Amino acid sequence: MNVTIAYIEEPPFGWTDYDGVPKGADLELANTVLRAIGITQIEHRLTTFSELLPGVEAGRWDMNVPLFVTPERAGLVAFSLPVWAISDGFLIRAGNLKGLRSYASLAERPDARLGIIAGQVQHQSAKEAGVADEQIVIFEEQAEAIEAVRSEAIDAYASTALGNRILAERIGDSVVAVDHEAREYGDYHVPVGAFSFNKSNTSLINAVNGQLRSYLGSQMHRATMAKYGLTNREIDPAVVRRADVEL
């Protein structure tokens, strides 16, 4: 049986390596789970974030790499059990001259501009924190947002805190990652991410969830994710909260 999984360029979750081979934490997790349920052929399809949900909904591929679970998205696709829980953060120029530490702090600076990838949950989070529409610049690709930070076209790029830390390490001294200030509701309410599928693909959904139940949180799972920078902080909330997600 062949399964095609779509991914985007977003280290450490997924990226195309120098040799053209797709790699990343989410892709390795997917490969491990799919092989364990008997899938012998796995194809990886590079796409854009805005095409992930429409693509799997239309049947152009079988599943997507994990993305944040929201009620709106759950109306379009079926989500697996959650596989990680990650808070937001900023990628900013070194020095952080405007003191940007959270969406709220950016909202207090009318001169600050925030870059966000079209369709990502960070857009709604920023608006709920008071960031004005005129402060937000929408990009289709992560590389465009990163270049805008480096060229000073925007002051910050919002994405996952973990992803931005990896980006900052790769880019070097010109940018830094800023984890958002801790929220009062605690780590176990940080948004969770999950694989997504066409709602009619029940056999694949059930098989993947069955394997995730036995694999997530295991010693092997934690060791594998640690290679990409995911720690117990990102794994434990997802393991605890998986029963809260409607499947």
Results as ranks from 00 to 15, higher is better:
Glu57Asp: 12
Lys98Gln: 04
Ala104Asn: 07
Val245Leu: 12
Gln41Phe: 11
His123Phe: 15
Glu152Cys: 14
Val176Asp: 13
Thr160Phe: 14
Tyr7Lys: 00
Leu46Gln: 05
Pro110Met: 13
Ile154Asn: 07
Phe79Ile: 15
Val190Leu: 01
Leu81Ile: 06
Arg242Trp: 09
Ile116Lys: 08
Leu216Ser: 13
His221Glu: 04
Asn31Ile: 05
Phe13Ile: 02
Ala132Ile: 00
Ala182Ile: 06
Asp236Ser: 15
Ser196Arg: 01
Ser102Glu: 06
Asn31Phe: 00
Asn198Glu: 08
Gly186Met: 06
Gly24Gln: 10
Leu27Ala: 09
Tyr188Leu: 11
Gly130His: 13
Ala112Asn: 03
Tyr228Arg: 04
Ala25Glu: 05
Arg183Glu: 14
Ile117Phe: 06
Val137Gln: 06
Leu204Ala: 02
Phe197Gly: 03
Thr47Leu: 02
Ile205Val: 06
Glu108Ser: 14
Lys199Thr: 00
Arg60Asp: 01
Ser105His: 00
Gly163Asp: 00
Asn96Thr: 02
Glu9Met: 02
Val240His: 14
Gln124His: 12
Ser200Glu: 13
Thr16Phe: 01
Ala78Glu: 07
Gly95Ile: 11
Asn96Ser: 10
Phe79His: 14
Ile5Pro: 04
Glu181Leu: 15
Gly38Val: 13
Thr231Pro: 03
Ser151Lys: 13
Val33Ser: 10
Asp179Met: 04
Met1Phe: 12
Met1Thr: 08
Asn206Glu: 12
Gln142Glu: 03
Glu234Phe: 15
Gln219Trp: 06
Gly20Lys: 02
Ala223Glu: 09
Gly172Glu: 05
Tyr228Cys: 04
Val178Asp: 07
Ile138Met: 04
Gln135Asn: 01
Ala30Leu: 07
Arg113Val: 13
Pro82Gln: 07
Gly20Tyr: 01
Arg150Trp: 11
Arg233Gln: 12
Ile235Trp: 14
Asp62Arg: 01
Gly99Tyr: 06
Val56Asp: 01
Ala104Lys: 11
Thr32Ala: 07
Ser80Thr: 14
Leu91Val: 09
Gly55Leu: 05
Val83Tyr: 04
His44Tyr: 15
Met225Asn: 09
Glu141Lys: 07
Ala112Cys: 05
Glu72Pro: 12
Glu144Asn: 08
Ile138Cys: 00
Thr4Tyr: 03
Ser125Ala: 15
Ser80Pro: 10
Leu91Glu: 07
Arg60Trp: 02
Ala104Met: 09
Ala107Pro: 08
